[in-house]
Design a protein around this nucleic acid. Structure first.
Lengths: 209, 209
DNA sequence: CAATGTGAAACGCTTCACAGCG
DNA sequence: CGCTGTGAAGCGTTTCACATTG
């Protein structure tokens, strides 16, 4: 199990492979080569093999990978057997869209709590989740065993929201605010910074040939 | 103008510098060193100098950068003088949230069209934008000189939506669907794959300590 | 003989370190 | 002297290339 340092890109590509393999199985394809799989997800054959190689040997020389076996292996590696509980903080346009997002269930994540500072929103139910007061966060996070917090508040309140989530005990934060959060090392933060993506596009447009 | 290949990270940091410089100017700071600027945005002095170095020489040995000059240079480099028109395809929860997103204006982007396949939605107005039929896309994209298309439809229809946007003439696509789109090389695609971010968190939780 | 698994080479970005300039 | 601009070193990832295997 001497798992060295696995590149983050590898992890995220494994999920892509898993998605594709699942699709292949559903059309009864039993075997696939790294070249063919890479082709379908726009990656090189070498990349596919290197990524898988971090976790063991799954292929058969000369014929490729058994889709069923590979699927099982990927699910095991990626921890698809467990479900994690999620809380969303900040129920504006984005927060509401997140509550309705079907992807959570698909990824074995369950949104079990929503928080907002606006007292007018408290008690309302959106996409089946009741909005609670931020005051009650510590208790609810603990009671419901929530390990992922999603920050969907404006930048100004993002650090505060993150701090409260961390104190309450979450292990990961998905941050939609365009600010860099400071949290203890043991907490994993993933930023989804739409502003940055948009800015990159602007630059591309301004500078293309 | 032999602009070599500029790292994407550099571009995105230039926007960070611009933001900071603008703040500095507003409190009448006229000069700043790479070390001090880096410090304020959590980057090394060398990183700041390398990033700027891609575009010319803006600093003064011994004293640093003139904030006014640097601001002007960054705005020119980043094309902050122009505004780009945007269309959103797929007006579900996410699409609606995007139409309401205030960040567009801040980045000199203007959402001027929205499309949906659902005839019941056509003609409705959301956050000031009227929803049009996908049929009318080619004409509207051309008439309104739209250069950025945002794909906010389910995965199954993402490739089709992207294809139509490209045919209609957009130069960039911001893709929220968890599929890799195939488009001609001249078109820039940025993926915002929420599923992947969530999955990475799942992996982190499943494999921590 | 087709396709894997994997060292070695290439690459791209960041950090270092210092010559040179005001 | 302080700080820039920039080659060179360092590092993590991707790509290459091939010996190996069923």
């Amino acid at each position: 199990m001497g798992t060295k340092k696995i590149p983050e890109g590898t992890i995220s590509r494994l999920f892509v492979y898993l998605r594709e393999i699942t699709a292949l199985i559903s059309v009864n394809i039993r075997t696939i080569s790294s070249a063919e799989l890479g082709n379908r997800v726009n990656l090189s054959d070498a990349q596919v093999r290197k990524d898988l190689g971090h976790f063991g040997q799954f292929g058969v020389s000369g014929s490729g990978y058994d889709t069923g076996e590979l699927k099982a292996a990927l699910e095991r590696i990626l921890g698809k057997d467990k479900t994690w509980n999620v809380a969303v903080v900040g129920i504006g346009h984005l927060g509401s869209a997140l509550l309705a997002y079907p992807g959570f269930k698909q990824h074995k994540l369950s949104v079990v709590a929503a928080f907002d500072a606006d007292t007018k929103k408290i008690g309302k139910k959106i996409s089946g989740v009741v909005i609670d007061s931020i005051e009650d966060m510590p208790k609810i996070i603990k009671d419901k065993k929530i390990s992922i917090g999603i920050v969907a508040v404006p930048s100004e309140s993002a650090q505060e929201a993150a701090g409260k989530l961390v104190t309450a005990g979450v292990s990961c934060i998905l941050n939609f605010a365009p600010t860099s959060l400071s949290v203890p090392d043991k907490v994993k933060v993933k930023d989804v910074d739409l502003s940055r993506e948009l800015e990159t596009l602007s630059y591309f447009l301004a500078n293309k040939r």
